[in-house]
Each structure stands twice: as structure tokens, then as C-alpha cells.
Amino acid sequence: MNYDWSFARLAPYWKAFAAGTMVTLELTAIVILVGTLLGVSLGFIATRRVGKVVSYPIIDILRALPPLVLILFMYYLLTRQVIGVTVPAFWVAAAAMSLNLAAFTADLVRSAIENVPHGVVEAGRALGMSGRQLTIHIVMPHIARELMPAMTALYIGMLKVSSLASVINVREVVYTAQTVIADISRSLEAWIVVGLIYVVLVVPSTYALRKLERWNNQTRPGQEHA
């Protein structure tokens, strides 16, 4: 071992890393927002007899595609040659990741809706609630509660998947590291910094997730007590 560690050489690039981190967070936030909305809608559609025909193939294909493949495919699809305008790489990555998240969300939402206990819905119907009122006031709160832990895990996963956006030159953390390395040839140090950034972002979220799960288990039925 006579590698000459030198983190000092990275110091001047702290602003670049900070900017990269911001891009990573922005990308993830947009994906969470769009992907969830899209996924929940798809999930509801997938519980309808007619909707199944359309949404099942979409969900299955999107789930089958590796996020990296989806990003590359969309990158070359959303170009001037194909659609007439060039979409900025950031938005291409956001779109591809949103579709990925939406597919997994839709599947969770569909199965959660199909597993809402019959009596829960029947009680609302017996009180004269319309289908719309049942969905908004009974079904939605029920599945939101049911899916919270699984969705949080998916969101944390998206934060990590966002690193793939570097392949189409989105200036997030990984891309930043690659440019810095090209500049000063300190790969090990740069990747350690990247690793640390992800650890700092993800580990607190994981703790929050565990807390959420514990709260979720304590404040709902399942553990019947005498």
C-alpha cells in the first residue's frame, strides 16, 4: 500500500459536489411527485375491468425494463430527430425514472385496493356514501396507511437510481465526480466522497422509515389486544 491519499486536492471542488447533490435531490423529488401521482392513477385504473386491459401491459413492461435501459431508450427517443424537439437530459431522466416508479407504485396500489376489507367499504355504502365519497374518504386513507412503508422504501430506492442519470450527462453527484476525476485524477477520493454523500442522504431516511413502520404498527389494528 503506497497509494498517496490526498483529499486536499478535492477541496476546491466542494461547490461542484454541493451542486451535484442538489441536482440529485431535485431529480429525486420530481420523480417522487410525478411517479406517485402517475402510479396511483394507474393503480386505480388497473382495478377496473376495462382499465386492466390497458394498464396491465404498461405496468408489466415498465417493471421489466431496467431503469438504466429505460433512461437510455428515452434519451434517444426524446430527441429532435424523433419527436422534433430535444428534451434536456435532466427531464429525460426524470421522465424515465417517474415511469419506473409509477409502474411499481401502480402494482402496490392495485393490490392494496383489491385487499381493502369488504366490511370497511360496505359500512360506507350502508351509510349512503357514493362511489366517489367511498374512494376519497374510505379507500384512499386506508391504502395510504397500508402502503406508507413500502412507498418510502421505493422513494429511497429512487434516490439511488438517480445516479444512473449520469450516463446521459445529467449533472448529479456521480456525473460531478466523473468530471472532477477527469480534472485531477483522484478517483478513490472522489468515489469515497460520493459514497459519503449517499450515506448521509439515505441513512437518516432509513431511520425515519423504521420509525414510521413502528408507528404504523402501533397505531392500527392487527395486534388485537384483549
Partner: peptide, 19 residues
């Protein structure tokens, strides 16, 4: 819906919204 609103129903298994 009007009938359901005015005809109260109490279920054997309560059917409460547990959460």
C-alpha cells in the same frame, strides 16, 4: 343512496373504520 342514508344498518361484525 337516499334510502341508505335514512335506513340505519348495524353489522354483526361492527364494520368500523378501525384506523
Amino acid at each position: 343512496l337516499t334510502v341508505r342514508r335514512q335506513v340505519g344498518f348495524v353489522f354483526q361484525g361492527y364494520n368500523l373504520w378501525e384506523e
